[in-house]
Amino acid sequence: MSSQFVYVTYIRTTPEKLFEALTKPEFTRQYWYGVSSESEWRVGAEWKLRFSDGRIADAGEVLEYDPPKRLVLKWRNEFRPELKAEGFSRCVMEIETLGEMAKLTITHSIERDNAKFIEAVAGGWPQVLSSLKSLLETGKPLPSAK
């Protein structure tokens, strides 16, 4: 009755820095296809991912906000009609400190079997998070795979 994608990575950084990288537009622009993450970052606030040309990529609401450990977003694609039609998904981002590194777990799910949206994020998250890891560890994101 649902589709889910889970991705785990380990990054040599602090939970605070990682949380900032996931929520601050000046960070997301660097590693996330140029998108800016926009929100007031409190529970119930709107949340958007905006392309550099101003279009909205994804949007939703902040469901949980517990920096630097946990962020839960209600999330719907806004620029691909066939994905938007699948409605809202839930994205849980969890950060755990392990010595000098942070473990990041992304669990993205939607209440729908074989969702195209989950297929799309299953392709996107590994690129985005690989680039994020490179940025935090080397100061340089990866080139865009697109």
Partner: peptide
């Protein structure tokens, strides 16, 4: 795999591997 491949990526890109997360958890 996520542990090993995260360490592999760090090693190739920075010259420094990651510590073993299993050991970190055990130490904690």
């Amino acid at each position: 795999w996520p542990k090993v491949l995260a360490s592999l990526k760090s090693y190739i890109e920075t010259g420094k591997p990651l510590p073993n997360p299993g050991n970190c958890a055990a130490a904690r």
